[in-house]
Amino acid sequence: MSIASLIRLISLAALWGGSFLFMRVAVPQLGAVPTAVGRGLLSSLGLAVVLGCMGYRPRLGRYLWPLLLLGVINSGIPFLMYALAAQVLPSGYSAIFNATTPLMAVIVGTLAFGEAITAARIAGVVLGIGGVAVLAQAGPLELTPAVLGGMAACFTATVCYAFSSFLTLKLAGAKSAVDTRAAVFISQLGALLVLVPGLLLALVLEPKLVPQVVQAPWLAWGNVVLLGLLSTALAYVLYFRLIADEGPHKALTVTFIVPVFAVLWGWALLDEPLSAAHAIGGGLIALSLWIVLRRKAH
């Protein structure tokens, strides 16, 4: 992995680690579905402004609908799932479940895309999952039905991310005719195809959401803005470029680092405690990254 890609990888992990904290602050005040919709809408608007200032006008032709579908899988469903999980799971736990995405990508790649499994890839993923498991022991939760539902939501999101990483490589990879900027922008519009109907359904089922959103404090809205502009719009620019340059397996190793940042942000901003489990788990994750990212791994 090049130095530029490594910098993108670390920056992406920091942004996505922060996303779980932003959701934890916003969701209790705004609700899960409004938070997810706000995230998708702000990321789309932010990207539109940036691309407009650059004078960029995407010409997609036959790629429009595939990119919209990519947005549903890569953004819309995961945004909603993680917002739902934020109602019952601490931010670190959602980030820990997110770290199982590379393992899911190995399974999906083998079963659906004909990818070969190498010993180094398996060893790195297993070691990374071990590090995540150690982190999970830093603060165990009681397995109530609500917690299990939150875990299921996180698992659904990881499956979506695994599939979308391969689709991204095909649609916006280094040899693709689609520019990364266009792919990111259209995919965020695609996310709204599932999020907006979800919001309308939520408003019908829970009319109290309207006054809840209107009366939400500015702190909650501020976290949605950070979630949409930094942890989504900017993050997906880095992520799509990483997939184009390094491939889906190496790009998805970012999810191993995300829990480390999520824990660090919690410690620095929310006074959440650190423990030896965090240090041991972080060390195992770092070793797994070295195994997966070293030049001999394919």
Rank of each mutant, 00 (worst) to 15 (best):
L200F: 15
V210F: 12
F79H: 02
G92N: 06
L269D: 02
A162L: 11
D179E: 14
W265E: 01
V204R: 15
A277T: 07
V214W: 07
R241I: 03
T101D: 00
G281Q: 06
A233C: 05
K250Q: 09
A297C: 15
L84M: 12
P140Y: 13
L203I: 11
S94M: 10
R8W: 15
P58V: 11
Y82S: 05
L30F: 08
A36I: 04
V134F: 04
S231Q: 01
G31Y: 00
S43I: 07
Q215A: 08
V33S: 07
L47S: 10
F185I: 00
A235G: 04
G92M: 01
K250H: 08
A177W: 05
L127M: 11
S19L: 13
L30Y: 02
L227W: 08
S2G: 10
A133F: 10
L192W: 12
A276L: 13
L15W: 08
A136W: 10
G40A: 11
L9H: 15
W221Y: 15
A123I: 01
L70S: 08
G92W: 03
G247R: 14
L205I: 09
S187L: 10
Q215V: 05
A120Q: 06
Q29T: 07
A276V: 12
Q212W: 12
L89C: 03
I129K: 10
I73W: 00
V224E: 06
E115H: 04
A119H: 13
I7V: 14
R181M: 11
H249F: 05
A152L: 14
R57E: 02
K175C: 09
S5W: 15
A174P: 01
M23G: 07
P259G: 09
V260L: 13
F22C: 06
L242A: 04
S231C: 15
R8Y: 13
I107D: 12
L68F: 07
